[in-house]
Protein backbone atom coordinates (compact mmCIF):
# COMPACT_ATOMS: atom_id res chain seq x y z
CA UNK A 1 0.00 0.00 0.00
CA UNK A 2 1.43 3.34 -1.01
CA UNK A 3 1.38 6.68 0.78
CA UNK A 4 -0.99 8.90 -1.17
CA UNK A 5 1.09 11.52 -3.04
CA UNK A 6 0.96 14.98 -1.53
CA UNK A 7 -0.42 16.66 -4.63
CA UNK A 8 -3.47 14.42 -4.61
CA UNK A 9 -4.07 15.27 -0.97
CA UNK A 10 -3.64 18.95 -1.78
CA UNK A 11 -6.05 18.81 -4.70
CA UNK A 12 -8.59 16.89 -2.65
CA UNK A 13 -8.32 19.50 0.10
CA UNK A 14 -8.80 22.24 -2.49
CA UNK A 15 -11.80 20.36 -3.92
CA UNK A 16 -10.21 20.36 -7.36
CA UNK A 17 -10.58 16.66 -8.11
CA UNK A 18 -13.54 15.34 -10.02
CA UNK A 19 -16.01 13.30 -8.03
CA UNK A 20 -14.72 9.84 -8.95
CA UNK A 21 -11.11 10.83 -8.36
CA UNK A 22 -11.90 12.51 -5.07
CA UNK A 23 -13.71 9.39 -3.87
CA UNK A 24 -10.81 7.16 -4.85
CA UNK A 25 -8.23 9.35 -3.12
CA UNK A 26 -10.37 9.59 -0.01
CA UNK A 27 -10.66 5.79 0.08
CA UNK A 28 -6.90 5.47 -0.24
CA UNK A 29 -6.41 7.92 2.59
CA UNK A 30 -8.90 6.09 4.78
CA UNK A 31 -6.75 2.96 4.77
CA UNK A 32 -3.46 4.80 5.04
CA UNK A 33 -2.21 5.19 8.58
CA UNK A 34 -3.06 8.75 9.67
CA UNK A 35 -4.19 9.42 6.09
CA UNK A 36 -7.39 11.28 6.92
CA UNK A 37 -5.56 13.22 9.63
CA UNK A 38 -3.09 14.31 6.95
CA UNK A 39 -5.95 15.54 4.79
CA UNK A 40 -7.53 17.31 7.73
CA UNK A 41 -4.24 19.07 8.57
CA UNK A 42 -3.96 20.36 5.00
CA UNK A 43 -7.55 21.64 5.03
CA UNK A 44 -6.95 23.40 8.35
CA UNK A 45 -3.69 24.96 7.17
CA UNK A 46 -5.37 26.20 3.99
CA UNK A 47 -8.17 27.77 5.97
CA UNK A 48 -5.74 29.44 8.33
CA UNK A 49 -3.74 30.75 5.40
CA UNK A 50 -6.77 32.06 3.54
CA UNK A 51 -6.93 35.25 5.58
CA UNK A 52 -3.26 36.02 5.09
CA UNK A 53 -2.65 38.60 2.38
CA UNK A 54 0.29 38.14 0.06
CA UNK A 55 3.49 39.42 1.70
CA UNK A 56 4.48 42.86 0.52
CA UNK A 57 7.78 41.54 -0.77
CA UNK A 58 5.81 39.21 -3.04
CA UNK A 59 3.44 41.94 -4.20
CA UNK A 60 6.43 44.07 -4.97
CA UNK A 61 8.24 41.31 -6.84
CA UNK A 62 5.12 40.69 -8.89
CA UNK A 63 4.84 44.38 -9.71
CA UNK A 64 8.48 44.41 -10.79
CA UNK A 65 7.91 41.37 -12.97
CA UNK A 66 4.88 43.02 -14.58
CA UNK A 67 6.92 46.17 -15.23
CA UNK A 68 9.68 44.03 -16.71
CA UNK A 69 7.20 42.33 -19.03
CA UNK A 70 5.71 45.66 -20.11
CA UNK A 71 9.19 47.02 -20.75
CA UNK A 72 10.12 43.94 -22.76
CA UNK A 73 6.97 44.33 -24.85
CA UNK A 74 7.64 48.05 -25.41
CA UNK A 75 11.23 47.30 -26.38
CA UNK A 76 10.06 44.70 -28.87
CA UNK A 77 7.49 47.09 -30.34
CA UNK A 78 10.08 49.86 -30.56
CA UNK A 79 12.47 47.53 -32.31
CA UNK A 80 9.87 46.47 -34.85
CA UNK A 81 8.86 50.05 -35.51
CA UNK A 82 12.45 51.06 -36.05
CA UNK A 83 13.04 48.19 -38.43
CA UNK A 84 9.89 48.99 -40.37
CA UNK A 85 10.95 52.57 -40.79
CA UNK A 86 14.44 51.47 -41.83
CA UNK A 87 15.93 53.92 -39.40
CA UNK A 88 19.54 53.79 -38.42
CA UNK A 89 20.16 52.06 -35.14
CA UNK A 90 19.26 54.37 -32.31
CA UNK A 91 19.50 53.04 -28.79
CA UNK A 92 16.07 52.74 -27.20
CA UNK A 93 16.38 53.58 -23.54
CA UNK A 94 13.38 52.46 -21.58
CA UNK A 95 13.00 52.50 -17.82
CA UNK A 96 14.12 49.25 -16.33
CA UNK A 97 14.61 48.01 -12.81
CA UNK A 98 17.99 46.66 -13.76
CA UNK A 99 19.38 49.90 -15.17
CA UNK A 100 21.42 51.94 -12.77
CA UNK A 101 21.15 55.69 -13.05
CA UNK A 102 24.51 57.36 -13.37
CA UNK A 103 25.27 59.62 -10.43
CA UNK A 104 22.49 58.21 -8.26
CA UNK A 105 23.08 58.43 -4.51
CA UNK A 106 22.26 55.53 -2.18
CA UNK A 107 18.79 56.07 -0.81
CA UNK A 108 15.75 54.46 0.72
CA UNK A 109 12.32 54.08 -0.77
CA UNK A 110 9.23 53.30 1.26
CA UNK A 111 6.03 51.77 -0.04
CA UNK A 112 2.81 51.62 1.92
CA UNK A 113 0.18 48.98 1.38
CA UNK A 114 -3.13 50.61 0.62
CA UNK A 115 -6.48 49.24 -0.49
CA UNK A 116 -5.68 50.04 -4.10
CA UNK A 117 -2.19 48.50 -3.99
CA UNK A 118 1.20 49.87 -3.08
CA UNK A 119 1.87 53.59 -2.92
CA UNK A 120 5.22 55.26 -2.46
CA UNK A 121 5.55 57.52 0.56
CA UNK A 122 8.12 60.26 0.70
CA UNK A 123 10.25 62.02 3.25
CA UNK A 124 7.98 64.10 5.51
CA UNK A 125 4.77 62.27 4.61
CA UNK A 126 2.22 61.46 7.25
CA UNK A 127 1.94 57.87 8.48
CA UNK A 128 -0.15 56.19 11.15
CA UNK A 129 -0.15 53.25 13.50
CA UNK A 130 -1.03 50.08 11.60
CA UNK A 131 0.46 51.23 8.29
CA UNK A 132 2.27 48.34 6.65
CA UNK A 133 5.46 49.55 5.01
CA UNK A 134 7.89 47.90 2.66
CA UNK A 135 11.38 49.31 2.71
CA UNK A 136 13.62 49.23 -0.34
CA UNK A 137 17.15 50.40 -0.80
CA UNK A 138 18.95 51.66 -3.85
CA UNK A 139 22.64 50.95 -3.37
CA UNK A 140 23.86 53.07 -6.29
CA UNK A 141 27.15 51.17 -6.38
CA UNK A 142 27.75 51.26 -2.63
CA UNK A 143 29.04 47.77 -1.82
CA UNK A 144 27.89 47.48 1.81
CA UNK A 145 25.10 48.88 3.89
CA UNK A 146 22.60 48.63 6.71
CA UNK A 147 19.02 49.82 7.16
CA UNK A 148 17.97 50.94 10.61
CA UNK A 149 15.28 53.11 12.15
CA UNK A 150 14.40 55.00 15.27
CA UNK A 151 10.92 56.03 16.40
CA UNK A 152 9.51 58.82 18.52
CA UNK A 153 10.09 56.80 21.67
CA UNK A 154 13.74 56.44 20.80
CA UNK A 155 13.38 52.73 20.06
CA UNK A 156 16.02 51.61 17.62
CA UNK A 157 15.23 48.88 15.07
CA UNK A 158 17.48 46.94 12.76
CA UNK A 159 15.98 46.04 9.36
CA UNK A 160 18.99 45.02 7.30
CA UNK A 161 20.58 42.83 8.34
CA UNK A 162 17.70 41.55 10.46
CA UNK A 163 20.23 39.73 12.60
CA UNK A 164 23.94 40.20 12.92
CA UNK A 165 26.06 43.12 13.88
CA UNK A 166 27.71 44.19 10.65
CA UNK A 167 26.65 45.81 7.39
CA UNK A 168 25.90 43.40 4.58
CA UNK A 169 26.73 43.28 0.89
CA UNK A 170 24.11 45.21 -1.08
CA UNK A 171 22.62 44.17 -4.39
CA UNK A 172 23.97 46.49 -7.04
CA UNK A 173 20.99 47.04 -9.29
CA UNK A 174 17.71 48.82 -8.87
CA UNK A 175 15.47 49.16 -5.85
CA UNK A 176 15.80 46.09 -3.66
CA UNK A 177 13.01 45.18 -1.25
CA UNK A 178 13.98 44.09 2.25
CA UNK A 179 12.89 40.53 3.05
CA UNK A 180 10.00 41.51 5.30
CA UNK A 181 7.59 44.39 5.67
CA UNK A 182 7.25 46.66 8.67
CA UNK A 183 4.13 47.45 10.68
CA UNK A 184 4.11 50.88 12.28
CA UNK A 185 3.28 50.84 15.96
CA UNK A 186 1.82 53.62 18.07
CA UNK A 187 5.11 55.40 18.80
CA UNK A 188 4.41 59.14 18.61
CA UNK A 189 5.73 61.95 16.43
CA UNK A 190 7.90 60.23 13.82
CA UNK A 191 9.60 57.17 12.40
CA UNK A 192 12.98 57.82 10.87
CA UNK A 193 14.71 55.33 8.59
CA UNK A 194 18.43 55.27 7.90
CA UNK A 195 20.42 53.76 5.09
CA UNK A 196 24.10 53.76 5.94
CA UNK A 197 26.41 52.68 3.13
CA UNK A 198 30.11 52.32 2.73
CA UNK A 199 32.99 50.50 1.11
CA UNK A 200 33.30 47.95 3.90
CA UNK A 201 31.17 45.71 6.12
CA UNK A 202 31.23 48.17 9.00
CA UNK A 203 30.12 47.24 12.50
CA UNK A 204 26.67 48.57 13.36
CA UNK A 205 27.94 49.78 16.71
CA UNK A 206 30.03 52.30 14.77
CA UNK A 207 26.89 54.11 13.64
CA UNK A 208 24.26 53.40 16.30
CA UNK A 209 25.19 56.15 18.76
CA UNK A 210 24.97 58.80 16.08
CA UNK A 211 21.73 57.49 14.69
CA UNK A 212 20.16 57.23 18.11
CA UNK A 213 21.00 60.87 18.62
CA UNK A 214 19.41 61.72 15.29
CA UNK A 215 17.83 64.87 16.67
CA UNK A 216 21.18 66.60 16.63
CA UNK A 217 21.40 69.42 14.06
CA UNK A 218 23.71 67.38 11.87
CA UNK A 219 23.06 63.66 12.15
CA UNK A 220 26.07 63.05 9.93
CA UNK A 221 28.38 64.14 12.72
CA UNK A 222 30.04 61.18 14.34
CA UNK A 223 29.79 58.75 11.45
CA UNK A 224 33.08 57.38 10.16
CA UNK A 225 34.24 59.45 7.22
CA UNK A 226 33.94 56.66 4.68
CA UNK A 227 30.25 56.03 5.41
CA UNK A 228 27.31 57.73 3.79
CA UNK A 229 23.96 58.34 5.44
CA UNK A 230 20.60 58.68 3.77
CA UNK A 231 17.44 59.21 5.82
CA UNK A 232 13.71 59.20 5.31
CA UNK A 233 11.39 60.46 8.02
CA UNK A 234 7.66 59.83 8.29
CA UNK A 235 5.58 62.04 10.54
CA UNK A 236 3.16 60.17 12.75
CA UNK A 237 -0.44 61.24 12.75
CA UNK A 238 -1.79 62.04 16.21
CA UNK A 239 -3.93 59.17 17.54
Amino acid sequence: MRRVPELLVERLALEELDEARARAVREELSVEEQGLERLSAVVDANEAHHDAPAPLALVLAVQQERRRKRTARMTAVSGLALAACALLAVPTLLPSDSVRTKGLEPHLQVLRKEASGLAQVHDGDLAARGDRLQLLYVAAEAPFGAVLSVDGRGVFSQHLPQRGDRAVALAANGAVALPSSYLLDDAPDFERFFLVTGPRAFALEEVEPTLKAWGAPDARVGLPADLTLSTLTLRKAPP
Partner: peptide
Amino acid sequence: MPLDVDALYRRYGSMVQRRCRHL
Protein backbone atom coordinates in the same frame (compact mmCIF):
# COMPACT_ATOMS: atom_id res chain seq x y z
CA MET B 1 -6.67 40.40 -17.52
CA PRO B 2 -3.81 40.37 -14.99
CA LEU B 3 -3.66 37.53 -12.50
CA ASP B 4 -5.09 38.26 -9.08
CA VAL B 5 -1.95 37.22 -7.24
CA ASP B 6 -3.38 38.09 -3.85
CA ALA B 7 -6.34 35.75 -4.39
CA LEU B 8 -4.09 33.01 -5.76
CA TYR B 9 -1.75 33.38 -2.82
CA ARG B 10 -4.61 33.11 -0.34
CA ARG B 11 -5.89 29.94 -2.01
CA TYR B 12 -2.67 28.20 -2.98
CA GLY B 13 0.05 29.86 -0.88
CA SER B 14 -0.23 27.30 1.87
CA MET B 15 0.18 24.42 -0.57
CA VAL B 16 3.19 26.04 -2.25
CA GLN B 17 4.84 26.75 1.10
CA ARG B 18 4.36 23.14 2.19
CA ARG B 19 5.86 21.87 -1.04
CA CYS B 20 8.88 24.16 -0.80
CA ARG B 21 9.37 23.36 2.88
CA HIS B 22 9.21 19.65 2.14
CA LEU B 23 11.83 19.81 -0.60
